[in-house]
Design a binder for these strands. Sequence first.
RNA 1: UCCGCAGUAGCUCAAUGGUAGAGCAUCCGGCUGUUAACCGGAGGGUUGGGGGUUCGAGCCCCUCCUGCGGAGCCA
Length: 431
Amino acid sequence: MRDAEIRQLRDLIGQSVRIHGWLYNSRSSGKLRFLVVRDGSGYLQSVVFKPGVEERVWDEAGRATQESSLWVTGRVKEDPRSPGGVELEVADLGIVSLCPEYPITPKEHGPDFLLNNRHLWLRSKRQHAIMRVRNELVFGIRDFFYQRNYVNIDSPILTPAACEGTSTLFETDYFGEKAFLSQSGQLYLEPAAAAHGKVYCFGPTFRAEKSKTRRHLMEFWMVEPEVAWMRFPELLDLAEEFVSSLVARVLDRCKHELEWLERDVSKLEPAASRPYPRIDYGDAITKLQGLGYEAKFGDDFGGDEETALSDDSGKPTMITRYPAAIKAFYMEPDADDPARALAVDVIAPEGYGEIIGGSERIGSYDLLEQRIREHNLPREAFEWYLDVRRYGGFPHSGFGMGIERVVSWMCGLQHLREAIPYPRMLNRLYP
RNA sequence: UCCGCAGUAGCUCAAUGGUAGAGCAUCCGGCUGUUAACCGGAGGGUUGGGGGUUCGAGCCCCUCCUGCGGAGCCA
């Protein structure tokens, strides 16, 4: 008798195995009991036939409640009537821990109830599939950069001052000093780019914005590459190559998960290949005006406008060269039009919104110093950041990509809250 | 912060201002191939809190709380 994971059973037809897991669901029909066991690696229909087992085994099978932890032994058998095509002919069974009435029944539930039970909700099939996709995406991101000789340099979570203004930061006490939870690792990454050339960070970021939409979380994960000597056109190529390769990877390796999620992959497939449509900010305004929006130069885009601008081909849309006035202080101005910043936003299709924001960074010490003044930022807090220009300034570019928005898009989710194991939202800090 | 919607059994939802119900879950019983199985039975309620109108309020009015959807802001 060998222990096995459910995912391996297809290769163990005819053999006797023992499975440890939890009872996902059970059905009975007279002298037959069907126990669907899950072990994290898959789901297994285990069949208990009354005349074929000891009475003790039959009774245990009847006593097991939803989500009771248990082990089953038996012979692995191919059977087209079983979901998955493989089932277990149960020989013996033992309940490890009997589960009292489990809150999440195999019927519909509302979001409030499910979020209050997030720690249990993670066991559900759909949530299981989403976390698998997230896992593949995260590994794909690291693999992408590793293969291109980027060095992972993680930024601090506790920071002394704001990256882009203090109003949206979570504040905490740091031995009598004020500290803030990071809302971006970028400023810390730029010095590292001077050390290693090509770097990236990947970690949680925090925004105290009182946002209540399907596209916002208080705590979300962001991956941010930063590349020395990279100029704006190459940055656009990098973002495009990055996103398209990740889509291709998930489509290739998460077929089952996307199937469980009933994701229409035909809407995702176009995003796996390059190029992506690119539109200049000025042309975007013109396009919006043509569609009847009251957009004018200098406006940022709302959710509806982003959706209107995104291509209906299923590819993300890259919007370039935003007005400098509505973008961050550290962005390099366009040499042809200093009112514009060399900035890009990548908008996911199907209304999933902005997944990437990036830019070429200001390389000049004097200009950066001027921008810090213009934005009324505390000069002393940015001395170290100015050092990146003071000691061997160099052109460099980078972007940030929000992981949950990408997971949400790939999985076709209605809301970002399912894309992260424990979502932190307005008025929700439990579990 | 603003606009809109909602809160009834453990869960998802019904109920003209006039006796609070169903499905699922739980417990008991039945069924030799079920696919969120099915069939029969049982238990389960201070209708979010407070105040008001009325002979009578789950339903109407005021207020507070909680949640949902959206706006703004952003990834």
